[in-house]
Design a binder for these strands. Sequence first.
DNA 1: CTACACCTTGTAGTGACTACAAGGTCAAGG
DNA 2: CCTTGACCTTGTAGTCACTACAAGGTGTAG
Lengths: 162, 162
Amino acid sequence: MTEAGRPIAGLTIGELAARTGCTPEAIRYYERVGVVPRPARAGSGRYRQYGDADVERLAFLRRARELGFSLAEVRALLTFSDGDPDRSCGDVDALARAHLMQVDAKLAQLTALRDALAGVIDQCRGGLAVADCRILGALGGGARASADNGIQTRRRADGGVT
Amino acid sequence: MTEAGRPIAGLTIGELAARTGCTPEAIRYYERVGVVPRPARAGSGRYRQYGDADVERLAFLRRARELGFSLAEVRALLTFSDGDPDRSCGDVDALARAHLMQVDAKLAQLTALRDALAGVIDQCRGGLAVADCRILGALGGGARASADNGIQTRRRADGGVT
DNA sequence: CTACACCTTGTAGTGACTACAAGGTCAAGG
DNA sequence: CCTTGACCTTGTAGTCACTACAAGGTGTAG
């Protein structure tokens, strides 16, 4: 790979960081958890030395993270691309599709949240006294209903839409 | 408050949890970080004893969390509603609006992510060899461009769209 | 009296880093 | 040669909002 231009001789972690948009701390973290391999150390000192392959791997990692893949998913993608290059990419496709479904689900949740929040805000003109605030009312108002409903599910599976 | 029905005498943490949809562990956590006050302990034993006000506060907290407010924001909202009830609720309104803007921004990012991911998937028919996989290509392809651009911003402010 | 469900505290783990401390190394300038 | 200062090294602790677990205490029903 890297068909364009001369190969990069030896990068320090800071240079690699600058080229890939990661921080050196993040790169060391990736190394620690085994998502990127431990690089050679320069003969003279003991600084980490990176090359083209590292730049690519890290750029890949960063892009995948930006697309919302978890580090575990990125690890899987990297395993695929590290493996037999003649194998079918069906696994990669499946992972990406599964992730897309998750993103769509999250999008739906977030949209619902947005509308609920906008609705709550819409009821408040901001000029009321706190005692009559519609936002606080809307947020607090459900307690009685819940209590009247009696005991509900514990251990909810939230989905963490934050 | 609780204008409907008789007041609740004394709830254990488990009962409070069931009524508010939290877990007992989460409630103890909220107490530890000071978002909910330390309750009285029953005279007989040393179990936590909760009442109506706690049910309301916790229900409020949970609803606000479900709307994506951080615990810090919930704390602020609770401080407003704990304070002078005659004060204007403009602060509440401002906080909610700021939060809505954050949600909208996240929504935009997530939508862009979705489209990028869908586009990447669209290029792959799943039958290719890994070496030619369009998904891996699309994710890894930017390394050279980035490298050619030279050094970029470090310490990016990500926005964390996950 | 014994089982059992629930409670108590405290600690450690999650994900994906970030922040800091205390020290080592390297290239350039004087 | 020596110093300065930027960068690197390791290791540890902190973030957020919890969850999970361990080891033991309590309350109630049979």
